Amino acid sequence: MHAGGGQTTIIDAVNAAEEAREQWRLPAARHGVPVVFIEVVCPDAAVHRGWFEGRSRVIEGFREPAREAVELRRKEFVPWSDDRLGLDGMLGLPSNVAAALGFLAAAS
């Protein structure tokens, strides 16, 4: 999503529910700028669990979610209706970055 002043904004969020996705569509529409969604998934539950348990995001004022909360959100995840790029987190950074850049270029 492009912010005011011609800058691009990247939001890294789960967006498991339609209401969460709408919070990005509405301001984009209000400002007449495109919004592009990229969904990154990890199809291997054991690898995902390892990534989750091994991360350390020390964000002031933000408590890390418990594993149980992540699993609950996964079960309640509403399928996307938007056009989006789906990336497999297992494929590696270089191929996913190339795919994302191509998708973004085509969307602009």
Score class of each variant (00 low, 15 high):
residue 3 A to G: 15
residue 3 A to T: 14
residue 3 A to K: 08
residue 5 G to L: 04
residue 8 T to D: 07
residue 10 I to N: 03
residue 11 I to D: 12
residue 11 I to C: 14
residue 13 A to S: 10
residue 15 N to L: 13
residue 19 E to P: 00
residue 23 Q to R: 14
residue 25 R to Y: 08
residue 28 A to H: 00
residue 28 A to D: 03
residue 30 R to A: 15
residue 31 H to V: 06
residue 31 H to T: 13
residue 31 H to Q: 13
residue 32 G to M: 02
residue 33 V to K: 01
residue 37 F to S: 08
residue 39 E to P: 00
residue 44 D to L: 11
residue 44 D to I: 10
residue 45 A to W: 06
residue 48 H to N: 14
residue 49 R to F: 00
residue 50 G to H: 12
residue 50 G to A: 15
residue 51 W to A: 14
residue 52 F to D: 05
residue 52 F to G: 01
residue 53 E to P: 01
residue 54 G to V: 10
residue 55 R to S: 09
residue 55 R to V: 05
residue 56 S to F: 01
residue 59 I to P: 00
residue 61 G to H: 08
residue 62 F to S: 02
residue 62 F to Q: 04
residue 63 R to G: 09
residue 65 P to K: 05
residue 66 A to R: 15
residue 70 V to F: 12
residue 72 L to C: 00
residue 73 R to G: 02
residue 78 V to C: 10
residue 79 P to F: 12
residue 80 W to G: 06
residue 82 D to R: 03
residue 88 D to A: 03
residue 89 G to E: 04
residue 89 G to R: 01
residue 92 G to N: 04
residue 94 P to V: 12
residue 95 S to R: 09
residue 95 S to P: 00
residue 98 A to D: 12
residue 99 A to L: 09
residue 101 L to C: 14
residue 105 A to P: 03
residue 105 A to W: 03
residue 106 A to R: 15
residue 107 A to Y: 04
residue 107 A to W: 08
residue 108 S to T: 14
